[in-house]
Computed example of a mutant assay.
Amino acid sequence: MKSLLFISLIFEMTFFCLPSSLPCEGELCPKVISMPLMDNMKASLKADIDVSQINRYLKAYIQQEIKKDVRTIIKDLVEKKLNNMKVEMSSRAEEKEMGKVCTDSVECQDNLDCINGRCSCNRSTYWNGIRCDQKLPSECEDISSDKDGIYLVYPKGKMTSRKISVYCIMSGNKKWTVIQKRTDGSMDFYRTWSEYSNGFGRVDEDHWLGNENIYRLSQDGTHELSIVLVDWEGNLMEANYSKFSVDSEEDNYSLSVSGYSGNAGDGMDYHNSKSFYTKDRDNKNGCAVSRHGGWWYDDCYQANLNGMYNGTINESGKYTGLVWFEWKRDYSLKTTLMMIRRKE
């Protein structure tokens, strides 16, 4: 566009400012073209225009622009090649150092830390098969904002990871990823294995984040679990666990939970090491069907936070409701919240 404007400007300047006589020699001699014109009375006219000066301007301008573009292209190619060489050399050095026995991070390459006696990618990066690459936020703990809300995360922080939406609760210097929420019974939790695996509900409302997502999140570092319970009188209790993880689907999303603290009573110890069950993949005791939920059942529970939302505290909800036996026995709770956080 700039070139066209420049050419147009030259043409206009030459047409209106062309001297009546020009000294010329060779290709500098005037080259005259005849142009048919029409006046406003539609009378035929003819104009002779000398284009030799236009040609000189155009030739000089085009040569200048070509030289400029070539210099820029060459410079960019050289810089790109040098950067690629630096990255390749750094990657080879990291690959050579990766997994080397160490006692301190100073013994490892700059981008590596000494973790569990081996040179490894530091917490903010991951090994992409060639080098340590910058991690994306893998959960709420990696989000820079201090405001509660919905965020996109990439479990394990890899670009190749399937991104998911999560609800984050920013509590002081701790940033929690919500994996379960029950508040009003608007979402049915009596679901199939596939539905519990994929997750269901809106993350800012009643929902289950999904066993596959919980598994991928909990395998990235050491996690803690916090459970908030509210009864129909507005009383609030907490059960916190210093270690929490869920195994893969091949291991039936079995639960690992320990390190209880809080005031609600340890309702999860009974479920530690148990497999997850649903109405279409129930255990031998038929707990998922009889207790109307999806959970880490055995015979059958001490907690049943994915049970039926009864909306009442009367006997009709006994055994099937949102139960935390250590606190309220078979009383069906009003609100439950489960959230996890990476500690290290």
Rank of each mutant, 00 (worst) to 15 (best):
S218M: 00
I33H: 07
D204V: 05
V178W: 11
Q63W: 06
K274P: 07
E12N: 04
F200H: 04
S194Y: 04
F244N: 11
L45C: 04
H223R: 00
G321P: 01
C121I: 00
D231K: 01
T103M: 07
G307Y: 06
N116M: 02
I214G: 07
Y277K: 00
L333T: 04
S256M: 12
V51K: 05
G172C: 10
D113C: 06
K163Y: 08
C119G: 04
D266K: 00
S34P: 03
K86S: 13
R191V: 01
T320H: 04
H223P: 01
D39Y: 03
H223N: 02
E79L: 07
E94I: 03
R131I: 13
D142R: 09
S248Y: 04
W324F: 00
S161N: 11
R131T: 15
E95M: 15
N83Q: 12
S290E: 15
L112N: 00
E315D: 13
K96R: 15
I54G: 03
N314L: 02
N211A: 14
N304S: 10
S20F: 06
P155E: 13
T335D: 05
E139F: 01
I62L: 10
L255Q: 09
M159D: 07
E141K: 12
F325D: 14
N111A: 15
D146Q: 08
S194I: 07
G234C: 08
V230A: 11
Y309V: 00
C114L: 14
M1P: 10
I143T: 02
